[in-house]
Amino acid sequence: MKTISVQEITAVTRKLCMDVNYDLPGDVERALQDGLKREESSFGQYCLEQILQNCQMAREHQQAMCQDTGIAVVYLEVGQDVHIVGGSLTEAIHEGVRQGYEDGYLRKSVVAEPLFGRDNTGDNTPAVIHTEIVPGEQLRIMVVPKGAGSENMGAVKMLKPADGLEGAKKFILDTVRQAGGNPCPPIIVGVGVGGTMEKAPMLAKKALTREIGSKNTNGLYAKLEEELLADINKMGIGPQGLGGRVTALAVHIEYYPTHIAMLPVAVNINCHAARHKEIVL
């Protein structure tokens, strides 16, 4: 049994919120550099150069790489032998987000209620928290800020089993094509297949945090990831939608068993600022 205090959880969450917005993960930066080598369009090359330069400046100045510092999505993997003391785990996360966004000069982009007033909560809380109980005595906290430009372009559809592989591919490609230049390409495409209506988008979102270039362990899905990436990069959308070869840096698919009569498919798109950072306590 391991004991972790809520104060520690708040402190590390605060730090993660700041660091994740200043420091683009190395795999994403390398994928952008590789993209620059492949890009044929001069606009595309210019965009990629500017994006890479901005990423350096963000680190150097400890300033948010993008002004849309997102709504904070927080993944928690709580070991079943962990004992959290001193207060509420959920509150500790919200407090960490509150402090991180305030102290890190990050934009507060959360409205308290979506339909009527849409008044800003002023501190970027609440976070969206996904908690999983796992074996062991560790607590893993991953912060994934998600901006609206790319999140607004996602979609979920309950296909019929008869729609099959072709139907799923069509839905995924149509979603990306329709998004065009809006989600700040080059994008990362997260796909969730199977489960239920809420499970598929959860898989799609989590798929975005996989290391770029990693493949699904099931060879059939790994091949599908490759095929879809090639198809997307034939669309000509290019960096920022101004035309080019590098529309997506990766397609990551995750799947889950589903019902005999279901075929849920979800697509979650990430902009090139694919921010995620984690810590294990």
Binding site: E40, S41, G180, G236, I237, G238, G241, G243, G244, R245
Partner: peptide
């Protein structure tokens, strides 16, 4: 419109 012209130039599908 650069969005239309640029994409048309690089489209292969």
């Amino acid at each position: 419109n650069l969005y239309e012209q640029g994409i048309a130039q690089y489209r292969r599908d």
